[in-house]
Amino acid sequence: MAPKQFTLDPGTRALLHDLEVSTARVLRRARLPAGLFAHGAVTLTTEEYYRFWDALDAEAADPDLAVRIGRALSVEAFNPPIFAALCSANLHTAAERIAAFKPLICPMNLRVTFDRTGLTIVLHWPEGPTPPPLLVAAELAFWAALARIGTRREVNPTHVTMRRPPQPSPAIAAYFGTHIREGEADTVTLSAEDASLPFLTEDESMWNFFAPELRRRLSELEASATTADRVRAALHERLPAGESSINAIAAQLMLSPRTLQRQLQAEGTSYQAVLGDTREKLARRYLADRSLPTSQVAYLLAYDDTNSFYRAFRRWTGLTPEAAREGGHLAHA
């Protein structure tokens, strides 16, 4: 299957200008064509997308660049799905809409939860290379920017976490209204009250104008993915929540378990094979982070207990998790 492509909007060039960063130098560092933005919207693979953000980070050489990006964001620099989200009634509705269409513009899925404790947005990245820290921080900063643009109020998150947070910075703390703390996932939480504040940019007629085209593009993206790809993406979301059963994943994909298994068999695989492969790759990634205890890795992979994870990892590698860590045997198979 051809690699998935994600839209890097021409508005990115305006953002780089506002950041006083040379577009030409960033593209050169990222090994991307010099005329990338010459013909409107461009598409990048995950690898190219990550290279772009790594190059931007290196070119700017500013530890607080994510804050500058958050402050520089404007409606003009937004992709159509984000502009359409500003037509929503409030941040909660906007987050649900963005979660549906985010795969069009970034190699990432979002999980949105909303209850009395607040609106929490969790970033889920594809298996493979770790996303650039600047990209993660900028995605988190985006939510504060979106809330402020929509409500015209200085809305602050109540809680922000990153798996690899930046060094504490007065500028970052001032922007978010709180420090970015180390956590099991990349998340941002806003109070239920702030998430329900009305967007002054609400325009349902504009949303109705954008939505059909966005749905068409999303359908095309999903049609290009195999069933195994879709199962892996769903597992990335559901495993940390303790859900690994075919029933849970089939429900998320709006299929019956029997249909899901039949489609996987047609692709020469099975649910258990995809589950095992996904768990193994995630286990290698998690264990590479020595701050995560083995028991926590087992939890993130939805194992009932640590011993079950040990047995599975030994079956995959012939080693214990500790031996793999110490011996440097964590490269992806």
Rank of each mutant, 00 (worst) to 15 (best):
M1Q: 13
K4F: 13
L8T: 08
P10E: 03
P10S: 07
G11P: 06
L16C: 06
H17M: 06
R25C: 01
R28D: 15
L32S: 07
P33I: 06
F37S: 02
T45H: 09
T45Y: 14
T46E: 15
E47P: 03
F52S: 02
F52P: 00
L56N: 06
D57G: 06
D62C: 10
D64L: 02
I69D: 05
I69V: 15
A72E: 12
E76G: 08
N79T: 08
P80T: 05
L86K: 07
S88I: 00
R97E: 10
F101E: 01
P103S: 12
P103N: 10
I105F: 04
N109Y: 07
D115T: 02
R116F: 04
W125I: 00
P131I: 05
P133E: 10
P133I: 03
L135S: 12
A147V: 01
E154C: 00
N156V: 01
R164G: 07
P166C: 00
Q167W: 10
P170Y: 04
Y175D: 04
G177T: 11
E184R: 10
A192L: 00
D194C: 06
P198Q: 12
P198A: 09
A211H: 13
P212W: 13
L218N: 09
L221W: 12
A225D: 12
A225F: 10
T226K: 09
D229N: 10
A250P: 12
M254F: 12
P257N: 14
R262F: 06
Q265V: 04
Y271G: 02
Y271K: 06
T278V: 10
T278W: 14
E280K: 09
R285P: 08
A288L: 08
S291I: 01
L292R: 15
S295T: 14
F309D: 04
R311W: 08
F313D: 00
T317H: 11
